[in-house]
Amino acid sequence: MIESKTITFKKIKEKLSIKKPWDSIIILALNILIAIPVFIILHQNLIDPEWPFHIDRILIFIALIVVIQVILRLLKTVIIICIFFYLIALIYGTLFGGYGFKAVFEDYQAMIYTMSADPNPQDIIISKLLPFPNKSEIIDAVEYDNPKVRNFALSATTKFFKEVKGYHEQRKMIQCFAVFKAIRDKWNYVNDPKGREYIAYASESLQHFSGDCDDHAILMSACIRAIGGTPRIIHTGGHLYPEMLVGNKADLEMANYLIKEVLFIDESKGKEIHYHIDERGQIWLNLDYTARYPGGPFMSEEILGALTFN
């Protein structure tokens, strides 16, 4: 009885085994297929020591390849089963909106692009932040629930970037970029009345798309929040400008790729992406009217206050 089971097991093992040299070729291909998504996950979640030439990431990838290669060699007699379950997992993710083939490809593109063209971080030192000037008036002016503001924001999302396919997880980000473009393309800078700080409501600025920096920041913040984004206004002393919450490092990588390779190719060509990192590690992208693309250069590096609209 035991001998019969042993013979049966050997037959099954032989059927599942792959002959040389195909076993080495398939193991190498499977190694790469497994290593890429695993490396992306590690890359997005491990602290970046900012070594030159991303040597830390290169070493992690090499170590990952070696470990996976050893494991696959040990399991080569059942490699067909490994391939089957791996493909089933990716196919399931692709069909039902999980982590599938397309998600792996998009994340890999964004990661590689950002590693080869670093954005330009600017850290906020929270201890230096001062009380925000005209805070109550600005909060009232950011009337994101005003129907006119909401309708304009909606029209922007249908006018710009609607034809961009894929990137379902970044839909809100892309729509916020559409709002930026709609306002940026129309904005006309006009000074306040002499000797007076005039704070225009968002719905008021929609009439002529004109005003000074605080009027632009108010309108941009209201429209971003009207479609589900999280904006904030930065105070630098003589200037106010809006920023939008991007998220974590992985979200920044995707934003960087979308801006420079999909949405604002000409405007951002050869330029860096500028952002701030708050005390919780969240990343905020510059949306100033002086920038031709989201994440354009800051007009002023000094930060005296921040007003967030959650």
Rank of each mutant, 00 (worst) to 15 (best):
G98H: 09
P21V: 05
L258N: 08
G281D: 07
Y144D: 09
A182I: 07
E50H: 13
W51Q: 14
R184W: 11
C82D: 12
T94Y: 11
F9E: 08
I88K: 12
T236V: 11
V38W: 06
F39A: 11
K76N: 15
I125G: 03
N134K: 09
K148M: 14
Y92G: 10
I12K: 05
D192Q: 08
G93N: 14
N45H: 09
L87T: 14
L304K: 15
P242C: 06
L154K: 09
I265S: 13
A63N: 09
E261S: 13
A250Y: 02
F39P: 06
I234E: 01
F180E: 14
S268I: 00
C176V: 10
L307Y: 10
P242R: 05
I62N: 03
C176D: 04
I7H: 15
S205C: 08
G97A: 12
I303E: 04
P294D: 08
D215G: 11
I79N: 11
L304T: 06
L258Y: 06
A110I: 10
L28D: 02
K128S: 13
Q44S: 15
G281Q: 05
R171C: 05
A250R: 15
P21R: 12
Q69L: 08
I71D: 02
N188S: 14
Q170M: 11
F298D: 02
T230G: 05
H216F: 15
N146L: 02
T290I: 01
L245T: 01
I234C: 01
Y241R: 01
I25N: 03
L90Y: 12
F84S: 10
P131D: 08
G270I: 10
S221M: 11
Y108E: 11
H43S: 13
N191A: 15
R232C: 09
P133N: 04
I218M: 00
